[in-house]
Amino acid sequence: MSAKIKKFNTVWGMVVDIDKCTGCGACMVACQAENNVRITTDASNKLRTNTWMLVYQLTNGESFPHHDVAYLPRPCQHCGVPSCVSVCPAIATDKNEDGGIVSQIYPRCFGCRYCMASCPYHARYFNWYDPHWPEGMDKTLSPDVSVRPRGVVEKCSFCHHRLMEAKDRARAQGNYTPLETIHLPDGEYITACTETCPNGAITFGDLKDPEHQVYKILWGEQDAEAVSEYLDMGGDGPTAHHGEGHGPLVTRNPNAFRLLEELGTAPQVYYVSRREWVRKQGNHSAMEATQAHH
């Protein structure tokens, strides 16, 4: 899997602390408003809703007094090896820009929905209807994001337009070197859900930049070059056992995990939970394999 991973100088990533999430859904609302996501007329039909960011409820399945719930916000995982990109017959989606954000270009999409079938995270949504905003509400549409017509697939873009604005700000202030990657300071570019979360459960930044909070959460004080090399290889496993001759040894925060990591998709979205049952649900077979290994 690691051979297929594209290397990027920056890797925009998200760390969601599940233990801080109350399931309030503010991230979902912020996402919808920020990205001109169309209004759902019948939200009871879950096959027709459109939620780039979706909060799932997890439960440990036990009865009182051991019952426990957790909430898991799920944006597009922006996989290092995105299955949606390889199946798209129209090159409407690609992962080709520094930062590793998986793009979705609506005018190019013709709605075959292969990407939706291939996405193991159900992060992609099809526009079954023409978008409609009640009169007056169309004035709330953001000019930074194009509105999607019926018949195309859409998904979370990590608020890509905010990245473009942040880069422009850096250019305007002269905080960059021409011809080199623009390394934005922590917090200069964050997604709408990150900004909105009232509990600060979502952290967003460059997974390769030691100055960024996401780096500190996942990799702590570890060497930036080692982490960079580790991410270039996909950053698989709760701890990296690439060992000698296979790359550097990097240890991820033991409470951090990625969804369905065993598939080898190498997502750029990480989750943190101090509760073992939550980590197990997010990454079941990998946890079992790890336990068997020990």
């Binding site: 100088n9 989606t93 690609d94 080709n96 520094d98 793009s103 880069k167």
Partner: peptide, 10 residues
């Protein structure tokens, strides 16, 4: 990829 920020990514 993309040292110049002017690449052909969509």
């Amino acid at each position: 990829l993309d040292a110049t920020d002017a690449n052909n990514g969509c």
